[in-house]
């Protein structure tokens, strides 16, 4: 499903971000210096930040004023994706019904999703008993259940070591393929972008630029990206 940002202007107290671009199916990475507005872009697409100007459409429908729950989007945050007082099972089950009144088949669905992310038998634990990687797996299981056409990740694996991060990225890529969803991924690591994203958007100097093929962009970086990469 395509995401189209038309003459978008997002104004916050300390900075503003412009975007006029289309994000195609498949996987797109968002890269750029911190504080440049990468997360803000995702928050706007998910409906948590209202743009001052311009429009956002997803799959041909204008969603600029649609409340977050009604957008065909799941956004994973960098942290705090789980409620600490709910179990792994409950946190995942919220993706089926936010009031957690689950039928027998729905319970099976939740178990199944936990299985897919490698957390079978962990359902009764609380988030505090999990490692950082496991917590993000729970959030991914919930994203699986929500089954929205667009999955967006805001540096969700930044705190993990390289091996674990690669493992998680591969899991995300598998989920994307299985659900045939559009994947958007904020990262500050060019390696991550190369690993799973065909296209990459550079966000720098208050502008989100048009997506470019990842390898070409990284091999021949514009000045802002070159400065960020230290090349």
């Amino acid at each position: 499903m395509d995401i189209k940002l038309e003459k978008l202007l997002i104004k916050q107290t300390d900075f503003s971000l412009r975007a006029d671009l289309t994000i195609k199916d498949g996987t797109t990475a968002i890269i750029g210096p911190s504080g440049g507005g990468k997360s803000t872009l995702l928050l706007a697409i998910a409906g948590f930040v209202a743009p001052s100007k311009g429009s956002i459409s997803i799959g041909g429908d204008v969603v600029t004023d649609t409340p977050p729950a009604q957008r065909p989007v799941t956004l994973l945050f960098q942290e705090n994706n789980l409620f600490p007082h709910l179990t792994v099972f409950q946190n995942t089950g919220l993706g089926v019904r936010p009031d957690l009144k689950l039928s027998k088949t729905q319970i099976d669905q939740v178990e199944d999703a936990l299985n897919k992310v490698g957390l079978a038998d962990m359902g009764s634990r609380h988030p505090s008993e999990l490692s950082g990687g496991q917590r993000q797996r729970v959030a991914l299981a919930r994203a699986l259940l929500r089954d929205r056409p667009i999955l967006m990740l805001d540096e969700p694996f930044a705190a993990l070591g390289p091996a674990l991060r690669h493992e998680m990225l591969d899991l995300v890529a598998r989920i994307r393929q299985e659900q045939d969803s559009t994947l958007l991924l904020v990262t500050h690591n060019p390696e991550d972008a190369l690993r799973i994203a065909e296209n990459t958007i550079l966000v720098a100097d208050g502008t989100a630029m048009t997506p470019q093929p990842t390898a070409a962009l990284l091999n021949n970086p514009p000045p802002a990206l070159a400065a960020y990469l230290g090349k």
Binding site: G47, P67, A69, F77, L94, R146
Partner: peptide, 10 residues
């Protein structure tokens, strides 16, 4: 994030 999560989950 918890408020955003709740909003996203409806």
């Amino acid at each position: 994030e918890h408020f955003r999560l709740s909003a996203q989950l409806g």
